[in-house]
Design a binder for these strands. Structure first.
Length: 273
DNA sequence: CGAGTGCCCTGACAGC
DNA sequence: TGCTGTCAGGGCACTC
């Protein structure tokens, strides 16, 4: 559930708490390392230089040159106060306050991997990640070029992270509605005008969602436990059975790209324009 | 290599 | 009340 705005909100809150501090211990709380939890012990003794975000991944840049990579999955949270249950990783610090950061993840979709240097090969999605939506290289022209090469439906393409980083099910549906593009449009069949509109909608919606500190549906929480404020601004996501505020057409809900999708069949078109 | 499918996992919720 | 069944979905392994 955490998508780019939620992860960005977490990074902004967490950075001042941990940047510049040295990790004393870092360990799994409930089980030995598995494929989703690798190399944690490498990070012990290293200082966290900076905390950044790439798509939905959180990157801890360590003084020894290694990188701690955290993905919150569906239900992951990072918190300075100790959760009651489902703690997966504990990072403790040599001194200072807070004394530790807890990674909680009830549904176990999250990951926490410490790599040597910046070797992302064990995380293929991160390794093949498209441009950040706010990066100057993400332009209408570059977006159109990337879409023009693919036969996949636009929703599947956006969820793949390869054309632009950070979108998940919520913001994809919102951006497609705003740009009047059908989620099942073959990406190369979308006309220039709507591709341009979609590029703009992606940036606009993510900007607004970050300003609202993300969307809280069920699980996502800010570092301080608070909820995100973007939920009231959602037009299509979660509005199954509702009506389009633009044309009054009934919303359609069905599975597209293995995700529950809601759209307006009347004003979101499949090809052209 | 691109495209499509199944799986992981557990809490929330609906229905009986 | 308490049980059962369904749903939520990001990323990855796997197949064709």
């Amino acid at each position: 559930m955490p998508e780019l705005p939620e992860v960005e909100t977490v990074v902004r809150a967490l950075s001042p708490l941990i940047e510049g501090r040295t990790l004393r211990h870092i360990k799994r709380a409930d089980a030995p390392d598995g494929p989703k939890y690798l190399g944690l012990s490498r990070a012990a003794g290293q200082r966290i230089k900076t905390l950044t975000r790439r798509g939905k991944f959180i990157l801890m840049h360590l003084s020894g040159g290694d990188t701690g990579i955290i993905h919150l999955g569906m239900t992951g949270t990072l918190s300075p106060s100790k959760p009651a249950d489902h703690i997966r990783v504990i990072m403790s610090f040599s001194d200072g306050d807070p004394g530790a950061i807890y990674f909680r993840d009830p549904r176990r979709f999250g990951r926490f991997i410490v790599t040597e240097g910046d070797d992302y090969s064990m995380l293929p999605t991160l390794a093949a990640m498209g441009p950040e939506p706010f990066d100057p290289t993400f332009t209408p022209a570059s977006f159109a070029a990337a879409c023009g090469q693919r036969t996949t439906g636009i929703k599947a393409l956006l969820l793949s992270q390869r054309v632009v980083a950070g979108l998940g099910n919520i913001y994809v549906d919102e951006a497609l509605w705003q740009a009047r593009v059908h989620p099942d449009s073959p990406s190369r069949a979308i006309g220039k005008a709507r591709l341009r509109a979609l590029h703009k909608a992606i940036i606009e919606i993510l900007t607004r969602a970050i300003a609202a500190r993300g969307t809280t549906l069920r699980d996502y929480r800010q570092v301080d436990g608070g909820s995100g404020g973007f939920g009231a601004s959602l037009v299509v996501y979660g509005h199954k059975g509702g009506y389009c505020p633009r044309c009054d057409g009934p919303f359609t809900t069905a599975s597209i790209a293995q995700r529950t999708s809601t759209w307006c069949e009347r004003c979101q078109i499949r090809r052209g324009l």
